[in-house]
């Protein structure tokens, strides 16, 4: 059984169909990348998986357990973490409290302080800023906090929505480096990106255009595809 199985997913916002008939499986381990231009439906897919926008039709299952109809906090408890577009850290909570409130699900036997230390070890910058409010952090630091917050629940699948958006190329590089480390720890990652450097990290993935899958497969196949060559390499 797949860690995540998405079958014939249709997501609509009112009359506007954002995602039509999308199916893909994610197995344990590795980085699965969801590549597509603005408005291709990437965010809609993530929001459907995490329960923020229930899909119009189709099924979403994790290890055979149906996730459709669950509330977002129940999806989080099932081990699927979502790092949303725009980071969405809690602006009036300190860095430490941002992490603390994300530990309520308790998927481990670890103590709160140990879970926080894990995150601080991954992002030492957050430890330096632990008393500062989330809203006062720089964009890069907020992204680290959003990822760290998702890690507090020890998810099995970490979904990230354009973590490089709005960051300088250097910072984006750092974030991807960290994601590589997280992946090496054995955590499966679903990465939504417009940025083609995501392909360097990825093992498998799909390309989305106008809410439909145009290509699904190993990352080498994606790299050779018309879409990537045209959009990112100018060939």
């Amino acid at each position: 059984m797949s860690l995540l199985a998405v079958e014939s997913l249709v997501v609509a916002h009112g009359d506007l169909v954002a995602v039509r008939d999308v199916s893909f499986n994610i197995e344990e381990g590795g980085v699965f990348v969801l590549l597509g231009a603005n408005g291709a439906g990437k965010t809609s897919i993530l929001r459907a998986i995490s329960g923020l926008n229930p899909p119009r039709s189709g099924t979403i299952a994790s290890d055979g357990r149906n996730l459709a109809g669950l509330k977002p906090h129940e999806v989080a408890a099932a081990g699927i973490a979502h790092v949303p577009e725009g980071r969405r850290v809690f602006p009036h909570l300190s860095v430490e409290d941002n992490l603390t409130v994300s530990f309520l699900v308790r998927r481990t036997n670890l103590k709160l302080a140990q879970a926080r230390d894990n995150v601080y070890a991954l992002f030492p910058r957050l430890a330096e800023r632990r008393r500062q409010n989330g809203g006062t952090l720089s964009g890069g630091e907020q992204q680290m906090l959003a990822i760290g917050r998702a890690m507090m629940n020890f998810p099995r699948l970490l979904m990230l929505d354009e973590p490089s958006l709005g960051l300088s190329p250097l910072l984006a590089e750092t974030v991807f480096e960290r994601l590589g480390e997280i992946s090496k720890l054995g955590l499966t990652i679903l990465l939504v990106e417009q940025n083609a450097i995501a392909l360097r990290l990825a093992t498998r993935g799909l390309i989305l255009t106008n809410g439909q899958v145009v290509l699904l497969g190993e990352v080498s196949a994606l790299q050779d595809s018309e879409f990537v060559r045209h959009s990112y390499l100018g060939l």
Partner: peptide, 8 residues
């Protein structure tokens, strides 16, 4: 929304 997705 952010509270929900971190499990609250």
């Amino acid at each position: 929304e952010a509270a929900e997705i971190v499990g609250i």
